[in-house]
């Protein structure tokens, strides 16, 4: 089916953008699933069943990707044919410094947990995260995918750190 070759933004009929309207996406996906889920073809022919399974899997896959910010940005880069060797690290001295500082923070927290410190850092990282998303939007606007990719690495790093710190707070 050539519909499977369309990108997910086209499939769900929404604009290609870093930010998406989650409830709009939910509605579109819901409408598609209600119409094309394999259950709707349970008494159909084998061909219909096979196509519905493919289509429905594709819709679920698209939903998973578009509803997650990191996966969504990776996907935008992919449909713009930007491929980067993931093993390469980015060349940014201040980001490197951030990474070293964060690792030190985590080490010291493992030895001696300090909830105030964790909370402060969470707020700090959340701000950095917001900024990196803004940077990603700007670079996407100017079609500078290289810069977009670099900011994406930062975004991933911040999300990972936030999750780690929240986990620490819980335990």
């Amino acid at each position: 089916m050539d519909i499977l070759k369309k990108n997910f933004f086209e499939l769900f009929n929404i604009d290609i953008a870093v930010d998406i309207n989650k409830s709009e996406l939910d509605e579109k996906v819901k409408a598609l699933q209600i119409k094309f889920h394999p259950d709707k073809f349970a008494s159909g022919s084998d061909v219909e069943k096979r196509l519905a399974l493919q289509l429905s899997s594709h819709i679920n896959d698209g939903y998973k990707i578009l509803s997650d910010i990191v996966l969504r940005i990776e996907y935008i880069l992919k449909i713009n044919n930007f491929v980067k060797d993931e093993s390469k690290t980015i060349n940014d001295a201040s980001f490197l410094q951030e990474q070293i500082e964060y690792n030190e923070l985590e080490e010291s927290l493992k030895e001696h947990y300090d909830d105030d410190l964790v909370r402060n850092h969470l707020n700090k990282i959340k701000l950095l995260l917001k900024n990196s998303i803004e940077d990603i939007k700007l670079s996407f606007k100017s079609k500078d995918y290289e810069t977009m990719w670099q900011h994406l690495s930062k975004l991933r790093f911040y999300i990972k750190n936030i999750n780690n710190l929240i986990k620490m707070r819980k335990s």
Binding site: I3, N13, A31, K35, L51, A52, L55
Partner: peptide
Amino acid sequence: MNNSIKSFIA
């Protein structure tokens, strides 16, 4: 199937 999904998206 293709057709129906296309008109659906549209």
